[in-house]
């Protein structure tokens, strides 16, 4: 009996099945709690799912690498999801094109504020250089942030964690920050969520309002594109200036 159980366990842990199933079950739990709370921002499903997975891996002493062999299939879908952001953009293209200047200006302001404030605060608090470099792309979606971190001397896996944490913080706090700052326009709320909190903020915006979601997707996609091009150059220029 125990022998059979052991063999089953060895089989399960050597195939991608366990990691994939665990990810989806954990997300289902997180989403059920989120739905139960009437989609309250505090009950964001991502941290709940991450906590469930981490607890399960720790309890079974499963290394991250083994888990990721299964979870990579979910991770992979980030690619087609980013491509698919073109669809809501194409639907709203007339409105978007008319607002080219507000979009471009807000993109630059938000991106610079997000990256410089994170690095400045962490630097003032004595955070190490490799960690600082991993913080630069924290408002950019995880797969793109990993690529940027690699180019500027950060740690890709750490950059992915910062990106996910930033996305969760933005999705949770967005409503309160907008209310306090007087940002009432749903397009502006969505755009800020997509820019500062990438895909997790965009998912939150889509759950609140369709227009907000469209502008979140727009900011999310544009930020990924602009950051991938500009951040490595900006960091190189800064290092050249700072010596």
């Amino acid at each position: 009996m125990t022998d059979e159980f052991f063999r089953l366990w060895v089989y399960l842990s050597s195939t991608p099945l366990a990691g994939l199933t665990l990810t989806l079950v954990a997300y289902a739990i997180g989403y059920a709690i989120y739905a139960r709370s009437s989609f309250h921002p505090i009950a964001n499903p991502v941290p709940i799912a991450v906590a469930v997975v981490v607890a399960a891996l720790a309890a079974t002493r499963t290394p991250y690498r083994t888990y990721f062999e299964g979870a990579q299939f979910v991770h992979f879908l980030l690619g087609p999801a980013v491509v698919g952001l073109a669809v809501p953009l194409a639907r709203e293209w007339r409105g978007v094109r008319r607002l080219a200047f507000p979009i471009a200006a807000s993109l630059v302001v938000g991106s610079v504020v997000a990256a410089t404030s994170a690095v400045a605060i962490a630097w003032a608090l004595g955070v190490s250089p490799a960690t600082l470099a991993s913080l630069v792309p924290k408002s950019v979606t995880a797969p793109v942030a990993m690529g940027i971190a690699e180019r500027i001397g950060g740690l890709p896996a750490l950059a992915a964690v910062f990106a996910v944490a930033t996305g969760v913080v933005g999705a949770v706090l967005g409503r309160y920050v907008f209310d306090a700052a007087g940002v009432r326009d749903l397009r502006a709320r969505g755009f800020a969520l997509g820019l500062a909190a990438h895909g997790i903020g965009t998912a939150r915006a889509f759950q609140v309002d369709r227009d907000a979601g469209t502008y979140a997707g727009l900011a999310f996609g544009l930020h990924a594109l602009a950051a991938a091009l500009a951040m490595p150059l900006a960091v190189a220029a800064w290092r050249a200036l700072a010596g």
């Binding site: 941290p47 991450v50 720790a58 979910v74 964690v161 997790i200 998912a203 889509f206």
Partner: peptide, 18 residues
């Protein structure tokens, strides 16, 4: 995919373990 975009970030988030 957009509706469950947040699911896709779970594997990267679990990387916090590393």
């Amino acid at each position: 995919l957009a509706r469950h975009l947040s699911l896709l970030f779970v594997p990267a988030g679990v990387g916090v373990m590393l």
